[in-house]
């Protein structure tokens, strides 16, 4: 089992390392992830939300429903922990 796991891990790692050849360079300012959507947030966040911290303004303002869904996930996890770990009364 350990040998099989080691082989699977090595094959996956080798495939991913082959895939990094097509990634943009590390820290490239003109990579596709940095040049499509995020400039709009950086330009308009002061006009639309008046918050200097861009991360907070996206988290609580532009993506407020996303954060609401995140709290739903935490609530579900807490309720399932309580339901799993309670001691059932005998009889």
């Amino acid at each position: 089992m350990k040998i099989l796991g080691l082989i699977v891990t090595m094959v996956t790692g080798a495939l991913l390392m082959y895939g990094t050849a097509d990634m943009p360079d590390w820290g490239d300012p003109n990579s596709p992830a940095n040049s499509r959507i995020s400039p709009r947030y950086i330009e308009k966040t002061e006009i639309e939300t008046a918050t200097p911290n861009i991360v907070t303004s996206i988290l609580a303002d532009y993506r407020g429903y996303d954060t609401l869904g995140e709290t739903t996930v935490i609530f579900t996890a807490g309720v399932s922990c309580i339901l799993l770990l309670r001691r059932r009364r005998k009889g």
């Binding site: 995020s38 935490i74 770990l85």
Partner: peptide, 30 residues
């Protein structure tokens, strides 16, 4: 634009860290 870091992955990963701890709690309960 080039003066500031890209803020969008930071927000998504902030959500992912909290979900990570929630799944950790359920896994430990099991």
């Amino acid at each position: 634009i080039a003066q500031y870091l890209n803020p969008l992955p930071h927000v998504l990963m902030l959500t992912a860290i909290v979900v990570m701890v929630a799944t950790l709690g359920v896994a430990l309960a099991i």
